[in-house]
Structures are given as C-alpha cells and as structure tokens.
Design a protein around this nucleic acid. Structure first.
Lengths: 261, 261
DNA sequence: CGGTACATTGAAGGGGCTCAATCCACGTGG
DNA sequence: CCACGTGGATTGAGCCCCTTCAATGTACCG
C-alpha cells in the first residue's frame, strides 16, 4: 500500500536533489540545464519562525515560494471567524499557488513549524515557460496532482464521516511525507495541533480528540506528542476507502518525449 | 457585484471566438498564430447525449476534452455508493483535467445535458508547451483559478451551513455562466436535479429541497423548471460571504510580457 | 509561580440525515 | 383517451452525528 516509488536508488551525490526537482523530474526526464535551473531557484533561502503568516489574504504579491523545509498551512478565514484549512504544504511544495495568483491573495499561508523557503518571482515563474517549456509542462502536470488531492479532500468533507476523514488524512500524510523522505514505513512526525486538524477536516476540536481516541482504542493508529503511528494499515485503508494513486500522476506520455526533443 | 469584465466589445466577427480561447487570452495577449492553434483544437466536434459517462473512473485515457456546449459533472463514487460531485463543467472548460492525468482515471465525468466536445490528445496538450509556451503559461495560470474554485468549494463543505452553501453555489454559477454568455443579469438555466445539487454540496436531496424553499420564502432566489432567478443579490452575497474575485485571476504580470516577447 | 497553549472529557442541543410516503409532469403503449 | 411507468420534487417524523460550551487537566516557559 505504502510505497516509495519516487525514491530511486541514486549514487551518493555531493549536491542534494531538492524534493521539487525530484518531483518534476518524475514526470519528464530533465536535462542538466533544466535541473541546474530548478536548483538555482532554491537560492537564496529565507527562514521564518513557527506560526508566522507568510502570505496574508488580501495583500498583493508578485512571487511564490518554494518550501524547502518545514510545514505550512494554507487556509481561509470566514467573516464569522470560522477557518478552513485548504492544504497542508510539505517540503517541495509550491507555496502561494494559487493564493498569490489573484489581484489580492485569496488565502493565507502560515508556518506550522520553522520553515525555510526561497522566493520565485512571477517573472521567473512565467519566463520559465519560454526558457524551459518541458519544466512548464511538468509544472502543469504536477498541478493535476494538486487538484486531485483537493478533490479527494472534497470527498472527505462532503461524504465521509469524521472517523473516516481522520483515517484518510493520516494515510494521505503518510504517503506524501514518505515521498519526500520524512516518514518511516508506518510513522511520522505531524506538527499539527488537534485544533488545526479539525480545521483541515471541517470538524470541531473536541470531536477530533474523540476520533483520535477512537482510533487508538480500535488499535488502528495512535497520535502522541506530534507523532503518528499507524498500527493497522489495512484496516485503516479500507475504513477510509483510501487509494493512494491520486497522489502520483503518471509520467507525461512517451509520445510527448519525442515531440519535445 | 456581477460583472461582465471578460466580455469585451468586439466587432462582429465571422469566426466566433471560443470561450476557452477568450479565457486564455484574458491572461496573456495572444498572437494570431496562437489563437489559430487554439481554435484548431476545437475540431472535430463530437456530440454526446444527456446522462452519458464521458470519462469512467478506472479507465485509461490519453486525451482530454474541450467542452464546447452543454454541462458536465465530474464526480467520485465511494465504495458504499455515496457520490461527491467535484466540479460542474461549463462550456470553455477542459474536461478530463485532472481525472485523466493518472494511470487510471481518478474521477468520472458525465454529461448533464447534450454536450459537444473535441478531443485533445496528451501529445498535443504537451507539445503545446514547446510550440506555444505562452499558451502553456496561460494554461497553468488558468489552473490556478480551478484550484481556487475548488478551494472555495472546500470552504463550503467544511465551514458553511447548508443554506449558505446553496446560496454560494447559485452565486458562483451566476458569475461563471455570465462569463461565457450563458446567464442574464440575475438569472440562468441550471440543468441540475436537486439530487445532483445535493451531491455537489455534500448534502441530501430532501435537505436541498428544504433550503430551496427557504430561499424562496425569504425572497432571495427561486429555482423552478431548471431556471434560477436571483431576487436579492446583496442579501444572498452577504449570506454566503461570497467574493467573486476567486473566479478571475489577474493577468500574467506585465514584466512577463516583456520577457516572453 | 502564574500564564499560556493545548489536550481531554462531559452534557446538552441542533442541523442535517434516513426512510418513506405523496405528488406531479411527462411520455408511452394499449 | 386513459392506464401506467418513470424521474424528479416535496413533505414529514425520528434520530444521530457532531457542535457548542464549559470545566478540568497538563506540560512548558518566562
């Protein structure tokens, strides 16, 4: 169920491959130039402390960020104060897409841990489509994954019970973290408060707490000290009707590889 | 509130501009070649009757569709039979994104009315990034809008009441349909059964019915014979906390226009 | 030591679901 | 011309999942 398809055996390399580069490279084989360009986007780095609003809804931006280390949440706050988290961003994710693509940012983004990012101006982002069209294609392809993820999220909120939602979230994070080397076979660190998980899943804090206890009592999984441990992957998966394939779009078709070269 | 920004005064033109071309052109000014290419994607056309599964979850595809006329719904069905609609596709939308981008289609897509589509093979879609990088950029930009829409949808399901959700849906459809010339100032034809609206909003059929009645009794809007009429736009907007800006990303920044030319 | 942030637990209430009956418009065939 | 079937809208009754509101517990930290 949980796999490590995106982690190829690779000779020890002095220059570490960033998660974003690895991901885009999994859609289209990248040339040296293309990889160099992508790597160059990772400098200069900038750090932010935990709980800092990196992007503020309503402000105007002319860049996005690449998240290099740490966790962020993208969310929207309604006039009455209710909050819905739209996405939990992990290392390798593009931060500010799509929030910053509007006259005024649609969503806010906050750091859940200390984070490290590098800014990518829109001019660079879109110049990229001309200079490195294959990267552009890969970027487009990767947004398909983003949309699919949000789609699954919609199914969670619309048609799954609280219990199922939580199970689904834990599994999704396991796979996503595993893909960037931040999860073990069946466990990972999850720096989310229960309140935040509630806002991810469209539930209330107390109810999340009850569901977590329920998972523990049923022997399916435990969450303690920001550490998630899956005890019964099979049961959890069938409970949540979890199919991880939505997290891994296929490669861009071979026929295109020819056209592109 | 409701505007028609994307509809420019245009001299009478023998060759009609397709909605997709118009939309992409609103992000980046397109050259004649680029427009010709986009127009060429609209042939040949293919018709499907109402209630036909255009894309079946689990099957493999090597193309997407451009929806030329009619309505479609993209949805996922859970093992227990519950269904969640992820998106209602209108003319000018790309059908099969992101459903078809996986080894096996993630979602299903069905026609809600008779529809007219044209197929775009992946090879064409991705060859486009090399041949017409600016179109590629615009395409990427437009997916930002897609993601933002789904994000708003997430807020609906996670944090809005049934009443608010319905109000929000009606307003969103008003703006989207207006943008492609399919809605009047305050009314439009909506070929969705109440059951389907329920599946869009994560509710049950009977409850949708009650909410519709409620809207009518409050004098906010009526839905009869597949016709939506907004009676009190201001109240409806504030009720739903509706901000239409998420439906219109800004143009790709000027600085890029220079880089690209 | 007091303050803050977060987890935990309980009690009561409500929003939306389920299940089911009824109604209605429409098309179809006898 | 009417009987019938079908898809969809409408309405009601009972219930349950989850919320809200609070109180309590607990670790950490200045």
């Amino acid at each position: 169920m949980v796999q490590d398809a995106s982690r190829h055996a690779r000779p020890v390399d002095p220059a570490p491959i960033h998660p974003l580069v690895e991901r885009l490279g999994s859609y289209v084989p990248l040339t040296g130039d293309e990889m160099d360009f992508l790597q160059s986007l990772h400098e200069p780095r900038r750090k932010f402390p935990r709980n800092r609003e990196i992007i503020v809804a309503g402000h105007r931006y002319d860049h996005v960020f690449i998240l290099h280390a740490g966790f962020v949440s993208r969310y929207k706050v309604l006039p009455d104060g209710k909050r819905q988290v739209l996405n939990v961003g992990l290392p390798g994710d593009l931060i500010g897409f799509p929030a910053c693509m509007f006259e005024t940012a649609m969503n806010s983004v906050s750091s859940l841990t200390e984070i490290e990012v590098s800014a990518v101006p829109f001019t660079t982002l879109f110049g990229l489509f001309t200079r490195f069209p294959r990267i552009g294609a890969a970027l487009f392809w990767s947004t398909a994954c983003e949309v699919a993820m949000q789609g699954e999220h919609l199914v969670d909120l619309g048609r799954r019970s609280a219990y199922e939602r939580l199970a689904h979230l834990l599994l999704e994070l396991l796979v996503r973290l595993n893909a960037v080397g931040l999860a073990g076979e069946l466990s990972y660190r999850l720096p989310l408060t229960q309140e935040l998980m509630a806002d991810v899943l469209g539930l209330s804090g107390p109810h999340i707490n009850r569901m977590i206890r329920c998972l523990r009592e049923e022997g399916l999984a435990t969450i303690e000290d920001q550490r998630v441990v899956i005890h019964d992957l099979a049961s959890l998966s069938s409970l949540a009707a979890f199919e991880e394939s939505y997290l891994r779009p296929r490669k861009i078709p071979d026929a295109y590889q020819r056209v592109a070269n």
